[in-house]
Amino acid sequence: MSVLVNKDTRVLVQGLGKTGSFHTDKAIAYGTNVVAAVHPSRAGQTESFTGETDHSGVQGREDSYATDVPIFRSVIDAVDATGANASVVYVPPPFAADAIMEAGEAGMPLIICITEGIPVADMVIAKRYLQDRDVRLVGPNCPGVITPQECKIGIMPGYIHTPGRIGVVSRSGTLTYEAVHQLTLNGLGQTTAIGIGGDPVNGTNFVDCLKLFNDDPDTEGVIMIGEIGGTAEEEAAEWITANMNKPVAGFIAGTSAPPGKRMGHAGAIISGGKGTAEAKIEALESAGVVVAPTPTDMGTAMLQAMR
């Protein structure tokens, strides 16, 4: 078991440019079932992906793959023809919010947006557009979602993951890899790892992911990786106190960040004395979360929380 994506996930790719093609190839090598792509001017064509199989992914496959992915004019056309039930967005920033809304209109149950640099105002509108539709957005500005050896959607390196017992949710890309790597090394592994992204306006938040992991019978514990800015970690702490029945470990990046400076991620900024790492760590610890003092201790913090 897992959350959000599994071996039955049928993936549509929106944005088959250089980045989109590169990561689609890696996903197919991992064993992800990529069934369609959308490109307005290339409708009717196919894109061929061939290469050596990534055996850290879906097991029991041959050593090489050759997959033709059909290209459609619109998301609706692609869904009608292929039954795609998850979409990944690599569309460039000026057009990415529109791509998200197009997927929303088509009723795509899961929309994962990798694109970094989407204007906040565009995301405010996109989120409003999705509000009354039965769809879920993950991201933007995130590494994606992976269920080890079943389905990899996004830009994370597949081979560091291993099937296991821990749900991972994170605002940061490389810190997620750090956590996943430690969980792999200490034998806990992952059920699903979700990158929710570093932007101030995003689709799925910590609380959404905690709910999913809490309800997933195979997830035995959760590690959440937050950072300075906003109040998402504090809201998660409140939810954990009231509802969570599984152990949670955590890490918050940015204890040394100066106020008023945007630390790379658009959302990672301490403004008006709000969003400090100290406040977030305090909130999580008072909710019973084992917070790792350094990123090197994330794996051990998880082990400690499970004891």
């Binding site: 940061s172 890309g173 810190l175 990046a253 960040a257 630390m263 003092p293 350094t294 990123p295």
Partner: peptide, 27 residues
Amino acid sequence: MVNGAGLAMATMDIIKYVGGEPANFLD
């Protein structure tokens, strides 16, 4: 010098944690 904003922040944090002071954030 780090890849990724979150890891870059965490690198500054860990330098401070072990008693040093970071000179920069660089992703």
